[in-house]
Amino acid sequence: MKRAAAVLLAAARVLLVVLAIGGVARAEEIKMVGVITKIDISGPDAKVATATLKDTKSEKTVDITVKDDLTLDKFKDHRIVEGDEIRCKYEVKDGKNVSNYFRKTAGC
């Protein structure tokens, strides 16, 4: 009886650990540097945009979904334009590459 209870307790602990790890697991963040080849944004009130980046290393193109207000504003007034080199971090969410970090590499 005592042994069965111990086994059950151990199993419960394993289950808790598995659940905890699963609960905090995050989508993998991918980093890239690429040049913008296209920006799709629908007007001045847009809350989302898609920027296509050509990876400077692999030369593959990646569509990045941008939702943060600051970057959207930079698209709208053309502070960020096609041809700019970008340092980007993104996560894959629901099949889309959603940007967490989107900044021009160039400075003054």
Binding site: R79, R103, K104, T105, A106, G107, C108
Partner: peptide, 10 residues
């Protein structure tokens, strides 16, 4: 526009 990117980048 200027003060964010001073010193060589954002």
């Amino acid at each position: 526009v200027c003060h964010e990117s001073a010193g060589g980048g954002v």
